[in-house]
Amino acid sequence: MDDFGKYLSKPEHEIRIITYRDVFQSSAAEKSKFSDEYKNLSAIIQLDKKDIKKMGLKIGHNVIVKSTVGEVTVQLKVIESDIPHQGFAYMPNSPWSNAIVPLSDDRSGVPEYKMLHATIKDAKNESITLIEELIA
């Protein structure tokens, strides 16, 4: 059953992403944006635990997040909060989130940092996107 399963494509789930700032990630950026510390604090997406269960994803596994302008592989995390946020995921503002943030359609000139429509699916065995790949 497991062998057969690997040939099936993983289901994609729609999600809206809000980017945010994290002081520990900002501190890591000051030291080096090419460090594992910066990658570990940046290349993540946080979902509501009910969404994770409903989508059949696993906390700590890698997921592929795809928008109209790009895709990245990041690690899935959960927020331990009493306030549910189903349908919304959070990503730190970083090169990984900016790989999938599109420009807005309105005349504000501000990209969709706070309301990014994307899909998410299990990354199987794919590794987190390297920072060098994001620049390439």
């Binding site: 950026a29 000051e30 080096s32 944006k33 090419f34 302008v69 790009g70 503002n93 970083s94 090169p95 900016n98 790989a99 943030v101 599109p102 420009l103 990209p111 920072i131 994001l134 620049i135």
Partner: peptide, 27 residues
């Protein structure tokens, strides 16, 4: 490459780009 959408930042590859910065940046 850290602060703006990459769909835009990548356009920098097509023009001569000069950086003045004390730190190592992605750009």
């Amino acid at each position: 490459f850290t602060s703006m959408p990459h769909s835009v930042a990548k356009k920098l590859k097509e023009v001569p780009t000069i950086i003045i910065d004390p730190c190592e940046t992605l750009t």
